[in-house]
């Protein structure tokens, strides 16, 4: 049984009498311990595909199966709260809170079993992804874009979930920062056994991901890379 299974998921926008199809009965599977990249041009349906995986939207047809259970049955809210962490291109942190508080917000929302001292967990997580104590106590709008994305990653990890979804996580970052973030994703997949799925148009990420799919005209296809994925440093 696959960790995540997308079964003939279809999605379209209704525009009056006509329908604009975004995804055409897409099927694929994802496993833990693997770093996935989903490539696609703008408007190819990457974000829609991620919104289905994250239960921020429902497929018009087909289903998304999480560990053998349809996420519609789990309940979208429950699924987001307890099964996955999500990272956005625009970081989406709460601006008047500190980095540590942003991480603790996610910890307070999940029903998952967490260590008893959430503050310590938040600081440790932030430290693990490169945000020291001094920056952890700053409001996030005083951090750089790369630092904010690290905080978003820490928040996604804080709920002790196995599925990490990321929507163009390096879109607003420079090359050096992009590489650092990619490394974090690789570590999460390979060292911590997470299933990391990143939708991106970045060739750099595609180059370093374990498995790459390409979304083209609403269809998901395996992507043939020119070289083998870059091994962990």
């Amino acid at each position: 049984m696959s960790f995540i299974q997308v079964q003939e998921a279809g999605y379209f926008y209704q525009d009056g009498d006509s329908r604009r199809f975004i995804l055409n009965n897409v099927s694929c599977e994802f496993e833990k311990g693997t770093f996935y990249a989903i490539l696609g041009e703008s408007g190819s349906g990457k974000t829609t595909f991620l919104s289905l995986l994250s239960a921020l939207d429902k497929p018009r047809s087909g289903a998304v199966i999480y560990e053998g259970q349809n996420i519609a049955a789990i309940g979208a809210e429950n699924y987001r709260r307890n099964k996955l962490g999500i990272i956005f291109q625009a970081y989406n942190l709460i601006p008047y809170m500190t980095a540590a508080e942003n991480v603790r917000v996610a910890m307070s929302i999940t029903d998952n079993q967490l260590p008893s001292d959430p503050a310590a967990v938040a600081y440790n997580l932030l430290d693990y992804i490169g945000i020291g104590k001094d920056k952890a106590d700053r409001t996030v709008n005083k951090l750089s874009g790369g630092e904010q994305q690290r905080v978003a990653i820490a928040r996604a990890l804080a709920t002790n979930v196995d599925l990490i979804l990321a929507d163009e996580p390096t879109g607003n970052l420079d090359e050096e920062m992009e590489n650092e973030i990619i490394e974090i994703f690789r570590k999460l997949a390979h060292e911590h056994g997470k299933c990391v799925i990143v939708v991106t148009h970045s060739g750099e990420i595609a180059q370093k991901a374990d498995t790459v799919f390409k979304l083209r005209k609403g269809n998901l296809e395996p992507y043939e890379r020119l070289s083998e994925p870059v091994q962990q440093q």
């Binding site: 994250s54 921020l56 809210e77 429950n78 699924y79 987001r80 709260r81 307890n82 999500i86 989406n92 942190l93 709460i94 601006p95 917000v105 996610a106 929302i109 999940t110 928040r155």
Partner: peptide, 14 residues
């Protein structure tokens, strides 16, 4: 609304 969107994306109960 952005902040509320974040809470919703994290699965917070309405």
């Amino acid at each position: 609304r952005h902040e509320i969107g974040i809470y919703l994306s994290l699965g917070e109960r309405k």
